[in-house]
C-alpha cells in the first residue's frame, strides 16, 4: 500500500468509526495532545478568541464520549444514525515536519435521528496526521462546515 493510501485510510477509518458509533476506537485514533475543531464562522482564524461549534482537547473528547455512553443522555435517546461520504482527498506535507502530514478531504454527512428531521452536514476537512508509536494518528482535525454560522439543532455526536 502506498503512503498516500495509508494516510487516506486514516481519514476513511475515522468516518467509519464515527458512523458505527465506535467512539472509544475513534478516540484512540487521536494523539494525546490532539485538537478536534469545528469552527463557528467561515475562515475562522483562531479558536482562542472566537467561539467554535467544537474545540476539544483529548480530555474534552473523552468527556464527550463518556457522556455519549451515559444511560441518561436524553439528546441521544434515540441515538443519531449517520452515514458519510468522504471524497476529494489530497495529501499535503505539513510545514516544518517530515513526521507530520496534512490530509484534506470533502465530507457529506447525513444524520437521521428517529422522530427528528434528517439533516445534512457538508464541508471541507483538514486532518494533521503524525507518525507516532509505529502508526499514524490524528494530531488535529479541522472541519469547516459550509453552514458553520447557521443556527443548529443539537449537535450531540461529533462530526
Amino acid at each position: 500500500m502506498s503512503d498516500r493510501e495509508t494516510l487516506e485510510r486514516i481519514v476513511f477509518l475515522e468516518g467509519e468509526l464515527l458512523d458505527e458509533k465506535r467512539f472509544e476506537e475513534w478516540l484512540d485514533l487521536y494523539t494525546e495532545d490532539a485538537i478536534y475543531w469545528v469552527p463557528a464562522t467561515p475562515g475562522q482564524k483562531s479558536p482562542e478568541n472566537h467561539v467554535s461549534l467544537f474545540y476539544d482537547d483529548k480530555q474534552t473528547m473523552l468527556a464527550r464520549v463518556t457522556r455519549l455512553r451515559h444511560p441518561e443522555i436524553h439528546a441521544q435517546l434515540p441515538a443519531s444514525r449517520t452515514c458519510r461520504i468522504i471524497t476529494n482527498v489530497a495529501v499535503e506535507a505539513a510545514a516544518g515536519s517530515a513526521a507530520s502530514l496534512d490530509v484534506t478531504s470533502s465530507h457529506m454527512i447525513v444524520e437521521y435521528r428517529p422522530g427528528w428531521e434528517q439533516r445534512i452536514f457538508a464541508g471541507r476537512c483538514r486532518h494533521t496526521l503524525r507518525h507516532e508509536g509505529g502508526r499514524w494518528r490524528i494530531a488535529r482535525k479541522r472541519f469547516d462546515l459550509i453552514n458553520c454560522d447557521a443556527a443548529f439543532a443539537a449537535l450531540t455526536v461529533p462530526l
Binding site: 482562542e48 467561539v51 461549534l53 468527556a63 457522556r67 443522555i73 439528546a75 443539537a154 449537535l155 450531540t156
Partner: peptide
Amino acid sequence: QVQYVNLTHSASSFVQTDDLEA
C-alpha cells in the same frame, strides 16, 4: 470564557443539548 461557553452553550455543548431536547 470563550472555551467555557463552547462547552456549556454551543449547539454541541454538554449542557445545552439536553435543554434543546427538553
